[in-house]
Amino acid sequence: MLTLKCPYCGVHADETELHPGSEAHLKRYGPGSSDDEFEGYLFMRENPKGVHFERWRHVYGCGKWFLAARDTNTLEVFGTYSAQTTEPPQEIKEAITAKRPGWSWREFQ
């Protein structure tokens, strides 16, 4: 059972307090998008053994969604950050690079 730090309220929360929300940094495609774009948005997900970015909600806490960068294999957590961003902040990227040099995930590295 994971523990993650909610970046909003600062609480180090147990997984029973949190709710997972699948992959982070998805770009929404709506009307006017191609079938391929829409399919990618709706269905195509990363499933890495290693660095991954996820959405979590502090559902039995402050109620805020936040994002987490972690290793799906070792369960190491590189950091959590605001959901109100389209890409991982620089310090998160650096934290990952320090532990996993040469990592990449979708368009980020």
Binding site: R57, K64, W65, A83
Partner: peptide, 13 residues
């Protein structure tokens, strides 16, 4: 409620 919060917090913040 959670669905609305999701869109407000994560897409149209």
């Amino acid at each position: 409620h959670a669905w609305m919060e999701d869109w407000l917090q994560c897409e149209w913040w």
